[in-house]
Amino acid sequence: MMLAVPATVLVGGLVVFPIAEATYYSFTSWNGETAQFVGLSSYSQLLFHTTAIRQIFQNNLAVVLSIPVGLLFALIAAFLTSIRVPGWRLFRSIVFLPVALSWVVIGIIFSNFLTPGQGIDSLLGGVGLHSLALDWLGSTHTALPALLATFNWALFGINTVIFMTGLASIPPEIIEAARVDGAGFFKILRHIVLPLLGRFVRLAFLVTMISGFSGMFGLIYVMTAGGPGFSTTTLEFQIYQSAFTLGNFGQAAALGIFLLLIMLVVTLIINMIGRRKAADLW
């Protein structure tokens, strides 16, 4: 029992106690020193949201909506690797590489790559798409797509590895049996491989979503600092801004509790969808 004491004390003091405090402070106007009880006012500001808050929620929604696109590429790559098309060995050795890179490094690399006149321009120019040479990170229309593309690029390796593990776990006899019954390539993919991958798709989605909602701070900080305007500010980034740029700790705490609730709800929904699908199968 003594063995678990240090871990319990540290988690209690550094995670559990702060989350309780954050909940309390979210009902106050708190500037870091004096906290005045204001009830639900911080939350009602979130509900009767200002333009900025609405923009921030839309950005978080965009993060979620971009995930299936990223997962699709990872799924294709994992499938091609698992059926060992020529070149799969080389591919497998590079695919996980971005996992070792920090958001800061990825942000610096892609900021340079996306700068007008740099990497992406010569690439687009090379295939005759000069008209697409834009100031990707400088415009309110393209900054968020560019950021999300970078984000999904960074998570691609992890997701591909998750799907490769999933594909390896499918017993070959099932596919064999389907083939004997006359099922073709796409039928096998659609009706056997994809349903059996369900829990891996769920894991990949959750890992990516958690990262996109609460792990992307470094990327945003380096690439866009949330701008132009609020066009790339997510909830996570706004918490930092509210607290450490604006000094509004109470609102930041409310946003933090809100972020936690959103993530719990999305996780529950994903798990419920997953369970029902699995139940249909049996």
């Binding site: 319990t8 559990v16 702060p18 909602f213 930092y240 972020l259 993530m263 719990l264």
Partner: peptide, 29 residues
């Protein structure tokens, strides 16, 4: 040991908490 399951469950649940949700009280503490 007594309370093992409850404490373990709370510890594991903490995995779900985004760092931004606790960083402000953490900083002030």
């Amino acid at each position: 040991f007594r309370g093992a399951n409850v404490i373990f469950a709370i510890t594991v649940a903490c995995m779900m908490i985004p760092v931004e949700s606790i960083i402000i009280p953490e900083y002030s503490n």
